[in-house]
Amino acid sequence: MKNKFIIIFFYIFFIEPSAAETNKLESKIFKSLRCIVCQGQSIAESNSDFAQTIKIVVRDKIDQGDNEKEIYEFLAEKYGEWIIYKPKFNYINSLLWFSPYIVLVFGGLLIFKYLKRRKQ
């Protein structure tokens, strides 16, 4: 009985949603692209002409079998990294991705230091 419970438990945890649904992928990509002619809107949100065109292009690319990453790379090449909402992980952006965690670790160590003082 117990074992069964554990199996069910892990089964739930490690299942990933079936990303195959094109519709989901499509709207995920639309949300991750900036409408560069608008003020702070994504392609999914924008009503602009530009957004309409990008939507068609993204749909075509998905139909051609391109994956998410390839689509982002294609658009970044044409419009610069400005168009992608999730910054690439590269040399320039490394601090962006790391520094929040540096703060987290540093803060933890600081609290730990105060806890340890007691024992001295």
Binding site: K31, S32, R34, S42, G80, E81, W82, I83, I84, Y85, K86, P87, I92, N93, L96, W97, P100
Partner: peptide
């Protein structure tokens, strides 16, 4: 001299 966008996917994943 590079323009990047930091949007919802960044904040959500961090």
């Amino acid at each position: 001299d590079t323009k990047i966008s930091v949007g919802p996917p960044f904040y959500n994943s961090v």
